[in-house]
Amino acid sequence: DLKATVLSAASPGEQKEMLGERLFPLVQAIQPTMSNKITGMLLELENSELLHMLESPESLRSMVEEAVEVLQAHQA
């Protein structure tokens, strides 16, 4: 399990990497085609928010949907 105490022992970059490794498969299950970029976007959020998303499928899903909209607007 990924806990805040484990994260606090790592560098900021390593923290994002650990969170990304756990978020990516979950994002991929929701939105397979843009999962790399969506995970990249989510990693710009606070680590506390990312930890919350890992524990709350509803939060993750709504953030992924929001990220898809932002991404599509950005690419348009």
């Binding site: 970059g13 994002k16 990497e17 990304g20 490794e21 790399n36 990693l43």
Partner: peptide, 22 residues
């Protein structure tokens, strides 16, 4: 322009480069 490359892609198993170490 840097906005063209936004957002950075996360790739499992690779170092995360999108977020600079502070």
């Amino acid at each position: 322009s840097s906005s063209v490359n936004w957002p950075p892609e996360f790739r499992p198993g690779e170092p995360w480069k999108g977020y600079p170490n502070i």
